[in-house]
Simulated assay, not measured.
Amino acid sequence: MNIARTLPSLLVLGGIWGLTPSLAKTAMAAGVPGLGFGFWAALGSATLLGLICRARGIAIPVSRIHLRYYAGAGFAGFAMANLVAYTSLKHIPAGFFALLMPLVPMLTVIGAALLGQERLNTRSVLGTALGFAGVALAMAPGAALPDPALIGWALFAALCPACYAASNLIGVQWAPRDTQPVAAAAGTLVAAALFMAVLGVAMGQFHIPGDAETRGDALIPLQAVMTAVAYMLYFRLLVTAGSVVTSQSGYIVTIMGVIWGAIIFSERMGPLTLPAAALVFAGLWLVTNRR
């Protein structure tokens, strides 16, 4: 399956993931704690996917192998990633955060090489170097980071793509075979909701709907539906198109993230943002297009 046939799914997936940071930032500004927002989004989307599985007669496997996979992917790819994202988004622009997302496939390639899953080649090394150079340029004065004093938060935010990359590696190492994509997504989100609940209670960020402004609580069901759609598309693309094609959504995530940040928060990027994004995209292209 090629890019042209999967383009609609990639556009929807990238659009959702590009909008999510801005929605979370809006909800937090309205008084919804970040971890509480993530918990209800995960629980709501897990419920929706569970209902879809029930309607289709699809069982959600609960063997030891499946539970290990749900726990690993839910913890690294959702709970820890969102903990980093929601904490850092209080301080950095949503558009800058979007520029970090193409690091996911680059870090995945490095991790896969360290784990012996695949070999590094010249394109991967060069692409990863260009990607990191682009992110470094985005942190420079006159780029996507408005204040040099925010570099510490920017570096902390870079842990988010590292969490997603860890989730990808877990998917390669632990993913059980012959599991329906919608069932895998539902199981992963149930585990994610449990982790988010524990983290929210432990850090004093558990949220009871009604304790924040109406506009903040109103974004929770929207995010739940978006998360359910994104996870269904993500797991289906992995099965039908493979990880390389699926990773092309990184271009769309970055573009839409910058656009949504400009629309919702009136974020204005400096003149160095364009060359920074060009470096990031060049690195992403080298890493994900190996032919």
Score class of each variant (00 low, 15 high):
67 L>V: 15
154 A>S: 14
84 V>F: 14
181 P>A: 14
78 F>T: 05
155 L>V: 10
60 I>R: 00
75 F>S: 08
226 M>K: 00
227 T>A: 08
33 P>G: 13
78 F>P: 00
61 P>W: 01
273 T>K: 00
188 T>P: 01
190 V>W: 15
112 A>F: 02
59 A>M: 07
69 Y>L: 10
260 W>N: 05
39 F>V: 00
156 F>E: 07
188 T>N: 06
136 A>Y: 04
288 T>Q: 10
120 L>E: 10
81 A>D: 10
185 A>H: 05
131 G>F: 09
56 R>F: 10
89 L>F: 12
23 L>H: 06
20 T>G: 04
181 P>I: 04
185 A>L: 04
45 S>V: 04
199 L>F: 13
146 P>N: 11
153 W>T: 07
134 G>R: 05
191 A>C: 03
180 Q>W: 05
9 S>K: 11
212 A>S: 15
272 L>N: 09
26 T>D: 12
114 L>W: 03
9 S>T: 01
163 C>L: 06
277 A>T: 04
120 L>H: 12
204 G>R: 05
210 G>F: 03
225 V>W: 04
203 M>K: 01
188 T>E: 09
214 T>I: 09
42 A>R: 02
202 A>D: 11
178 D>R: 15
10 L>C: 14
232 M>L: 13
43 L>N: 06
158 A>R: 07
128 T>L: 09
150 L>H: 03
42 A>C: 15
104 V>D: 01
278 A>D: 02
36 G>W: 08
36 G>S: 10
207 H>M: 09
109 V>G: 02
233 L>V: 09
20 T>V: 14
200 G>C: 08
174 W>A: 13
3 I>R: 11
144 A>E: 03
171 G>N: 11
127 G>A: 13
123 R>G: 04
282 A>M: 12
83 L>A: 02
100 L>Y: 10
276 A>N: 01
59 A>P: 07
159 L>E: 09
276 A>K: 02
102 P>Y: 10
190 V>Y: 12
115 L>W: 09
85 A>N: 07
193 A>C: 12
214 T>S: 14
54 R>T: 03
161 P>N: 13
47 T>H: 07
136 A>W: 02
189 L>M: 14
118 E>V: 01
289 N>V: 10
176 P>T: 11
214 T>D: 11
65 I>R: 15
70 Y>S: 15
126 L>G: 05
24 A>T: 12
158 A>E: 09
114 L>R: 13
151 I>E: 08
14 G>Y: 02
117 Q>S: 10
46 A>R: 13
258 V>T: 04
2 N>V: 06
171 G>Q: 07
199 L>D: 00
216 G>D: 09
218 A>F: 09
90 K>V: 07
95 G>Q: 11
272 L>D: 04
58 I>G: 03
34 G>Q: 03
63 S>F: 07
219 L>K: 01
159 L>C: 15
4 A>H: 09
53 C>D: 05
259 I>H: 08
88 S>Y: 05
204 G>S: 08
261 G>F: 06
83 L>P: 00
